[in-house]
Amino acid sequence: MSLSRDRLISIALVSPSILAVLVFVYGFIFWSVRVSMSNWVGLLPDYSWAGLANYRNLMHDPRFHIDVRNTVIFTVLFVAGCLALGLILAVLLDQGLRGETFFRNLFLFPMAISFIVTGVVWRWLMNPAQGSRISGLNLLFDKMGLDFLINQWYTTPYWGIGFIAIPAIWQMSGYTMALYLGGLRSIPDEVREAARVDGASEWQLYRYVILPLLSPITLTAMIILGHISLKVFDLIVAVAGKQLPLDVPAIYMWTTTFDGGFYNRGAAIGILLLLSVAVLVIPYLRYTLRTEAEL
């Protein structure tokens, strides 16, 4: 009796969220797929069948090509930057220096800020104006005599999107550090000592012992950072507004749907975004579920 009541409670507890997820996640995914295969342009829904035409058009859309290119550049720089910086910070903190807690929190703090705030601040810092109107980091470089560092930041032709990765790395590398630090702490001292006894240098210790042991952390971090970067929207809008050289799929989805009324195209972009994130996340989920089952 008491067991079945526990069961009842647990079912009652999860059923609202299951219902909500069914309706608001899977229901709307299905609905978006349907819209993406329709001819809906304008205020009123038009569900007439268009098949894959919207997807085909996107494949030939020069703006979508820019979006994909920008996403790839941003993702590579952002993920690589966060992993490298996060690992370096974690290894430094792991040396047992004084004030570790202080530095740990210092590096982690940017994560508590929203991308919008980060974006507004970095919009000022990365002011591309030169000459008499110079300001932000360019002004700092100018005053310090580091003129060769003065640049156009995110207005740089073609590579501008790469500079957007700087505030993103600033914000998320602390989080990556926390992940790595947790990983480093879980490596038993005996392992390090055994390696040292075998005559490994510090470099060899990290290269051949610690790093391989950290690879599950690296994978987790890549998945988390990767899906953030595929969906990036707010940071770019806050830094640079909606401009085509820095366009990404999420921004195109927003402008084409709400400024242009192309609900069909917006839904198609949304579904492509979902698929790209799924390609990243689903193998990872399967991997973690399988390893958990083994345990």
Binding site: R63, L244, P245, G260, G261, F262
Partner: peptide, 17 residues
């Protein structure tokens, strides 16, 4: 209209680059 304008906006954005 909005749809036309947003297509022109895309064309213009590409032209600026």
């Amino acid at each position: 209209n909005d749809a036309w304008k947003s297509e022109i906006d895309t064309a213009l954005g590409l032209f600026l680059t």
